[in-house]
Computed example of a mutant assay.
Amino acid sequence: MTNQKPTGDISVNNHANGDFDVVISNISDANGVSAVKVPIWVVKNNQDDIIWYDGAKQNDGTYKVTVKLSDHRNERGAYNIHLYYVESNGQLQGVAGTQVTIPEARLSGDLHISNQSAAVFDILVTNLKEVKSQPRLSAPTKFTLDAGYQVRYDKALYADGHQWISYLSYGSLRRYVLID
């Protein structure tokens, strides 16, 4: 056994939809590394959404983890990222940690946030918007929202290559509005 501390560098590459990749490089541990573990969680609400990801070894010797916001309740904001090695002797060793902030979803110029509470947002529609039962451009339009209509939505998501907001209708049906 040696007292030399394991080392590794953590870098984060954001995707346009908010998902991100964590890349671990410059891996060094005198006791050997049999696996790379990367626990990740949203700072808000402590560790209630923590996921321990297994790093996938890449051809260049780095390890990579892809994080989907949908696996973390589509939360945006600060994410904690920690790095652990499973050493050749089976011991779990803490190595490093960092934080990344995923910005709030960007809204197009024809939607304006007018009220924001902990889990619900109000949007004022300034141009005609189609409402769909699925977050897909190919989904049939159920109805349209006229300018001046206010929508209270509880989710923002990225699907089918676009940004959407979603809400539950009075009949408890999930509805989607394209916002980009």
Rank of each mutant, 00 (worst) to 15 (best):
F20C: 09
I40C: 08
G18P: 03
D71T: 07
L107F: 12
N17T: 09
D19G: 08
K142Y: 00
G32M: 11
L92W: 06
P103K: 08
F121E: 03
V120N: 10
Q116T: 13
M1C: 10
N17C: 08
L157F: 11
I51R: 04
L178F: 04
N74C: 08
S117R: 12
L137Q: 12
G161F: 08
R136C: 08
V65P: 03
G97R: 12
I10L: 15
D122F: 00
N89T: 10
N26I: 05
Q99W: 14
Q150S: 13
T98P: 04
S88C: 01
S34Y: 02
I113C: 02
S88W: 01
F121S: 04
A118Y: 14
K155A: 12
I10T: 01
G18V: 04
V151P: 07
D122G: 03
H72F: 09
I10D: 01
G97H: 15
D48E: 15
T98D: 09
N89R: 02
N59D: 10
S169N: 14
Y79M: 04
L83Q: 02
R175W: 06
Q116R: 14
I123A: 11
L69T: 07
Q134M: 14
N80V: 13
T126L: 07
V36E: 06
H82I: 05
S114P: 01
Q47P: 06
R73A: 12
I40Q: 03
Q116V: 09
L173T: 12
Y149P: 00
T101L: 00
H162R: 13
L137D: 09
Y170F: 11
S34T: 12
V38M: 06
A35Q: 13
I113H: 05
S108M: 12
D154H: 13
S166R: 07
S88L: 05
H82E: 14
D146P: 07
L178C: 02
Y79T: 04
I40R: 03
